[in-house]
Design a protein around this nucleic acid. Structure first.
Lengths: 173, 173
DNA sequence: ATGAATGCAAATTCTTTGCATGGCT
DNA sequence: AGCCATGCAAAGAATTTGCATTCAT
């Protein structure tokens, strides 16, 4: 069950390399260093600037813009998850989805802003459980559900069909 | 069950006036106009700039800064709820919590960005229900829970006690 | 009359972009 | 070689702040 940081780094690197092969991306030292920042860091939720500060130690010449671009890319690659804790900047966490579909939730303290995590084995009477397990006094919650509405599902299906068709033509040629 | 816009406006105005009495706030025409923007608007989730554009028609001299300050104030007063749909700005909605504790959730389409609302009668197998009721294909969700951690609960309790004490002293004098 | 609220403009903060240069593949 | 990725600086966008003035109480 336990996994060392090296093993995690290897796993994430493997996942990055898979995607780099498929798509037209390149492996760069900057990208490795950014990924490592997340694996090594003790704090789970890093902002672009947090990452920048960490990464400058290993690669002093790196630019903040590169960090932003890398975070975007990793999010698109599903290596990271973009989060928002209402603290004025986007934060990111490693997306190591070991158990499929097991999200975790974020408890944000209105007093000190600290963020706690809780597994989602339980979407039962949420607040009762938060109270019991975390002694967290819930004031409010906001659930955001991301996905595709009916229209966009159709659009995407149509696009996928068209792409498949084009791919087939290319192969024939 | 149905409520006209005038009734809603009256209700919200009443709630504002209550708070203005208690605290040291003042009733201004700008604040009324901003509140009205939310009551009258057909779109439920307004950004600061949306509000600014609406409100300029009624009060052309108003400043964007005032809109921001008013939105903050209303949020603090619990008249509005601050939302975040990942579209680069904060949005606000009327907080008319008729049925206590009945939140609603936001479905954000990854394709077109449209936002849907669903009542929270049901925090059962979420995705199944979203699929059935909204034909919404869930890809991911993010639940944010706001409240107070154990430490802050203690701090707040202590502060409340101190304030009560001071108030008592003042009364005695 | 007093202090809170406003409008305006400048300042901040986070993030993105343009472009010349460097570095994977 | 080709072209993606980088660094830097400038641009953008959302939000906040300072300050003189206005306005509610």
């Amino acid at each position: 069950m336990e996994r060392t940081k090296e093993q995690l780094m290897d796993l994430m690197m493997k996942r990055m390399k898979e995607q780099i092969k498929n798509k037209k991306y390149k492996m760069t030292s900057q990208r490795q260093v950014v990924l490592r920042a997340f694996v090594e860091s003790d704090s789970r939720h890093l902002s672009a600037d947090d990452v920048f500060e960490i990464v400058k130690k290993q690669a002093p010449e790196i630019g903040l813009a590169t960090v932003y671009r890398t975070l975007d890319l990793f999010t698109e690659m599903d290596l990271l998850k973009k989060l928002d804790f209402d603290d004025g900047c986007s934060r990111y966490e490693l997306n190591d989805h070991d158990e499929e579909g097991h999200y975790h939730h974020h408890l944000i303290c209105l007093g000190c802003g600290k963020v706690w995590e809780c597994k989602d084995d339980l979407l039962e009477t949420l607040e009762t459980i938060l109270q019991k397990q975390f002694h967290f006094q819930t004031v409010d919650h906001q659930l955001k559900v991301y996905g595709y509405c009916e229209d966009c599902q159709k659009k995407r299906a149509a696009e996928a069909a068209k792409e498949a068709e084009e791919a087939a033509e290319t192969t024939v040629q």
